[in-house]
Design a protein around this nucleic acid. Structure first.
Lengths: 202, 202, 202, 202
DNA sequence: ACACTCGGGACTGCCCGTTAAT
DNA sequence: ATTAACGGGCAGTCCCGAGTGT
């Protein structure tokens, strides 16, 4: 899949249709047949863009991550720009929930892929996704440290990892009992985060 | 499936074979055909005991939980018996790792089922499993409180839930990057646990 | 199946449940499982009364025929009793429609069995059913002849056969296009019948 | 299924094999497995051409109808061509028996489908088949009227419908008791036909 | 580069019927 | 007379690749 391929209208369509279908039917019931019907693309066409159904799903997930990344970079730019006074907490309030509270599609795809991790390609994508998240989070902590909001002696990367452990836990819990656990509030998340920070040097 | 059915030799065999096969091939590649070949049972026989492949997997998981439960009860009996001086920590050391460090089959099945939670029956089993774990953990905390090891003002159930959130997170992380995250040691787990206890009243 | 068996409460129940289920779901979707669920009988119990699912269906059909037979005999009794003046036409008007206009279950079962006639047992039952119908009809014509309503030179049996050929045709047509063919009125049927009578000596 | 698909060698093969198999084993015992074995086609290949086993059978039936249609058109051409002197009766003698005396496969498939008419698709095909037959017959009667062999005051379509009712009846009877009812002779059929014509205006 | 038809093979779940035991 | 346990066949679904055209 070349770079240029990524921008093909049909490929974009494919991704959108897939996302929409997963949203409606869930991953398991989203068959190639359904995607074919909805998109008008043929099986051959789909497999021209993508090596497997799982990879297709993974690409949808990646696209979602891209979006978050862009928003993050914008926020970072503002935060690091001394001219603009954006407290770190603002980032937390706007951005973190998106990462955590993924009731939406990313979460569904994520756990679908997790169950298919015996496919090497999937495992790889999953690991990438994880590293990417950690990276994002790390950077964010570092900025906090620069601003003096987070103690500088912390290992940013380790802290990020710790934090994400909890986030994963929250996601699982939400999947198991969606109503039992109320959606995480900004406040909870924030306090949790600082708690993680202070607690462990691990 | 009546209670008596559970003890049928063939049913026990079925569970064992399934467990073994999952261990070797993973959930996705564990086909009914393979189980049929290995166990010598026919498809009809299997479906006599079980309503679907997913339910079969879920039953293996439940059986594993049963084992843990029994061990737990034994431990509790010793812990509550004043004659026998078994410090609470012993439970933690022996039992908790089993719950958390499930590199083994339970974890694999768990995440397989999580990806199939759109099947109502599976969702149900998953919720049961969760509640069951929380229950176990709650009881364990309460014993700790009776022995004065754990502060009595804590809400045992909430604490247990908190704790398990983290445990789930650990499991996910281990699945994504098995080598990145080193196996959780007893000490870590114990400290984590007490940390959770102290931290939140949430 | 002994004679006594036929009166067993469970057997009666079985027949009723089956009939009801066929009425709701049609023959093809009426599975043994469904009948088991509804009746509370186990598979073994059912197979104690009946040799196969097809035979079960056939028995329901036979039971229906029994009912018609009884009504017929009552009518015949009245018709042959000189004291009671019941014109032959009364029989025609009340009884024939039941035989012909079987939008109801008998028709459904009949054609279901027809498609399974390669099973010797079914073929046999079907033939019985046919002969039985002809017999009934023959007797009816003969009564008509005794009363002078039907010309005596007709071969009652052949006429009955001819008549039924047409009736079968009507049933098929009704199944293929239920709305196209309007329900046969008493008048039509009666005229058809007399027409058949007059027409062929064949 | 596009028009071109219909001429694919494999599709033609599929139809032929299916027909042959039904001829040998009957509809119920004609399994996909058997067709796969005989044709060498895979299940995927078959389901590429056809949506279900029933549809496959229906297509065989349609193909048979096509054949009759072509023969009919040839005959019609000769009959309407004043140069060629072909009495109408010739058509009747050669063609009608084919329609009626279907001891062969069409009849078997027809009643198989009739028992599966709860599938909407099948019901549709069945209705088509019926209309098609009526159309054919209607045209044939009209030609007869033009040639002065059949009284012009008859409603051709209604007469055709009446006629087919009887034909269906004959088919059923033949299926129930093949030996009881001797194969319909040309003479019988012809007489029946004219009888139908004269009798009803209905 | 892009698209599609055709085809292959694996797998699940369903369903009917049988048998051993009681 | 009734049940649980069991066997095995079948249809339909699905993912995917091979070959073809454009």
């Amino acid at each position: 899949m070349s770079r240029s391929t990524t921008q093909t209208p049909n490929f974009t369509l494919l991704l959108e249709i897939t996302e929409q279908t997963i949203r409606e039917l869930g991953c398991n019931k989203t068959t190639l047949q359904e995607i074919m019907n909805r998109s008008g693309l043929s099986k051959g066409a789909i497999y021209h863009y993508v090596k497997s159904k799982d990879e297709l799903f993974a690409l949808v997930l990646q696209a979602k991550m891209q979006e978050i990344n862009e928003k993050f970079n914008e926020a970072v730019e503002k935060a690091t720009n001394p001219e603009i006074d954006v407290p770190l907490q603002a980032i937390t309030e706007n951005l973190l929930p998106q990462i955590v509270d993924e009731t939406h599609i990313s979460n569904i795809i994520f756990f679908y892929l997790l169950a298919h991790k015996d496919t090497p390609r999937i495992k790889e994508i999953l690991a990438d996704m994880h590293n990417y998240s950690i990276q994002l989070s790390t950077k964010w902590i570092e900025i906090g440290q620069q601003h003096g909001v987070i103690p500088k002696e912390l290992d940013a990367r380790k802290t990020a990892a710790q934090f994400f452990t909890y986030v994963y836990g929250l996601r699982v819990q939400r999947m198991i009992s969606p109503n039992a656990a109320p959606p995480v509030t900004k406040e909870q998340l924030f306090s949790l985060f600082y708690h993680t920070l202070k607690g462990h040097s691990n």
